Amino acid sequence: MENYSKIMGIPVPKITMDYSVELLNNVIQQNKPELFHVVTLNPEITMSCQHDKQLRSIIDEAGLLTADGIGIVMVSRLKGNPLPERVTGCDLLIKLLETGNQNHWSFYLLGADEATSKKTSEVINRTYQNVSILGRHHGFFNELEEAKIVEDISSLRPDILVVALGAPYAERWIHKNKNKLNAKIAIGVGGSLDIIAGKVKRAPAIYRKLNIEWLFRLMNQPSRWRRQLILPRFAVRALLFKENKT
């Protein structure tokens, strides 16, 4: 049995949350010069990869893919090559903060609006007192500001660069700047800063356990219904997709 499950042609490693954190801990300890790009793969990115060759190459070059969303995991199970569990961007970020608190890791936060970015930094500093937030910047910047942000990150050399610019823009941004960032790890985390800051309420544990977090989000943010139409489309296309065995 392979150590990955193919989802619409993309090989997704069969790894748990704990193993993901262990792997990233090793990356930080090894202190290699090249950036390690983590992509939390969701149905939207997977669908976009079918017609966007540049995005697909970014995904193929990533250091680690995780299954972000129950849709990815359910398709793997229905196709008979199951992934062990979801490893979402938000959950992975929280686990990295917990581990970073034990190991005195440093972070840089990029994304969200200014108030949310500031509040997130305050919450992390209060909750994880051994973690260093070396710097932060909101996600609404122009090209001139972007150059300064990249320079700032490069000079600060964080262990982990957290990019909350939305998918797949975060993945493109990390890939475009990967040779200039001087971070050990970079990860796109979607709207995770909104959750940490308390701007968006996280689904209760029972919703997460039953894998219906999407339903809680839809009830609390009805405007998301158009975006969530991609989920049934993804499920049908992914289940009918003829995977190459090689």
Rank of each mutant, 00 (worst) to 15 (best):
M8T: 06
G9C: 09
I10L: 10
D18Q: 15
S20V: 02
E22G: 15
E22N: 14
L23K: 14
Q29S: 14
K32W: 11
E34Q: 07
V39H: 08
T40R: 08
P43M: 07
S57R: 15
I58E: 13
E61V: 05
A62Q: 06
A67W: 02
G71K: 04
S76T: 00
S76K: 06
K79Q: 06
L83N: 04
P84M: 04
T88A: 12
C90Q: 14
C90H: 15
K95Q: 15
L97C: 02
E98M: 12
T99H: 15
N101G: 01
N103R: 12
H104C: 03
S106A: 08
A112Q: 14
E114Y: 03
S121I: 11
V123K: 12
I124K: 08
R126S: 00
S132T: 12
L134A: 14
L134Q: 06
H137Q: 12
E143S: 08
E143K: 13
L144R: 15
L144F: 10
E146T: 08
V150L: 00
V150C: 04
V162C: 03
G166I: 06
I174K: 11
H175M: 01
K180P: 00
K180S: 09
L181K: 00
K184E: 06
G190F: 13
G191D: 01
L193H: 06
D194E: 13
D194H: 05
I195Q: 08
I196Y: 08
K201W: 05
L210N: 08
L210F: 03
N211F: 12
E213F: 09
M219S: 15
S223F: 15
S223V: 13
Q228R: 08
Q228C: 09
L229I: 01
N244I: 01
